[in-house]
Amino acid sequence: MAMTRSRARALLLTPAGLWYAAMLLLPLAVVLIFSFGERSQIGGYAPGFTLEQYANLPARFAAFRNTLTLAPLGTLASLLIAYPLAYYLAVKVTPKWKTMLLVLVIVPFWTSILIRSYAWIFLLGGKGIPAFLAMFGLEDVRLLNTPFAVLVGIVYGYLPLMVFPIYVALEKLDKRLLEAAADLGTPPWRAFLQITLPLSMPGVLTGSMLVFILLMGEFLIPSILGGGKVFFVGNALVDLFLQSRNWPFGSAVAVGLVLVMLVTVGLYTRAAKRFGAGRDDAALM
């Protein structure tokens, strides 16, 4: 009986297991093997075992530094803008307008981020916002090709990913809890801090995680709005794999990124768990 049960379970898990192996472990193993190899004369990979590629990693320090500052910063900026928006959508808007406004949040996703980022080149470029600022005497403001431009692009591109999880968390928040808080003597602003904010944390954590992880691999926005001056690890990878065809070094950079991601996401989840112990279950009630 127990045998057949466990066999059935094994059978059921096989597709998922195969998928996992094929999509995740196999590519990772290839990258890992490449990273210990050498660049062949004509580019690409030549077998070998050397730590040379890893020793060269500091050459790409700037990419790691940019990623590790702009990704958290971008996540934070998205969060600060997304929360009020999600709150407004979930709590303040009448049902009639809600659907329309929600659709408006998604609409930008219907065109490629590439095209939308080009729109920002115009807005942030000489004839855009800087020209507008010049009318008020603020001459020579340079926005394009700065970290700020990349940040703007990030917030713009990733906002919906942050808005939706927070919206969902706020939407399912039981409004009677706020009445209970008021009944017990809490003015509205304090009820927000004591009830709404903590109970929407699962949404905040999900949104932040989503945006942060995707940002760590970002390369389009920095290459368009950073003008080659502000580049991420993602740009380094594009460069190494597609341009200079230095696959082993590219693989080492990729492994480095995975490790950095594992560490930061690990730390983040630990902090989040400690902060919101049991909150996930609580919010389900």
Partner: peptide
Amino acid sequence: VPAHRRPVNMVFQHYALFPH
């Protein structure tokens, strides 16, 4: 007078206890 300044308290229909 808003609810938070009234000297009454309520036991809600579905209790409305704070889950966190």
